[in-house]
Nucleic acid binder design. Sequence first.
DNA 1: AACCCAAGCAACCGCTCTCTC
DNA 2: GGAGAGAGCGGTTGCTTGGGT
Length: 210
Amino acid sequence: MKGLENEHYRKGLWTEEEDKILSDYIRVHGRGHWNRISKVTALKRCGKSCRLRWLNYLNPDIKLGHFSEEEDDLIIRLHNLLGNRWSLIARRVPGRTDNQVKNHWNTHLCKKLGIKKPRGKVVCSMRKISSPTAETKTVSTDNFNFKPLQSSRITMSVDCPINTSETSNHGVETHQFIDDQHCIQSFLSAGNSFKMNSPGFLEFLDGFFY
DNA sequence: AACCCAAGCAACCGCTCTCTC
DNA sequence: GGAGAGAGCGGTTGCTTGGGT
Ligand SMILES: [Mg+2]
């Protein structure tokens, strides 16, 4: 019998009244500690739902409305380079959230590009710091840290769960793709250790996408 | 008017990552 | 230094809407 009455959270679309309660709360207390909100207001929403509503709608920095051609081009370029890393992409698209970018990709850009099957992750394959003698391997999450070795071969590839002939790897289809991949290659060749979300790599991205 | 179907997309779920104490 | 809490991520779902017949 641990706080059963607090587990009755509402789900689904947010009402104007709910938005107002959340906005008022954030105006006073700031963002964060989302789980507290349902305990001190009349809002019957779990912390996760509150956080998401703020991040994707109530935050005044968010740009609403249709995506421009320039935004489309930027997203396509970034997606070529980064794969389905929506958060990473959205950070480089002013006023757009990861959810917006993901939805826009899935509903509009996919068709625009004539993509039938979703593309796998762009992965980086090389030797790992902790085991320099181990064979080249890919990784399944972004939480890794590669350091290029003198003799190591650095490759970018497209991870594709279903092996069809045209999507093996090095899915190079356009000039832009080659250029963007070269951007990571040069980052690695400069001797930088590589971690997908590291400050160093994010700063490096700034130089390519402005 | 009534129905069907699919596009669009807000929000959920399960999971990972990070931060704090 | 590790456990628990908070924050973040991305695939997916299911409700709403719109267009076609
Ligand atoms: Mg953004």
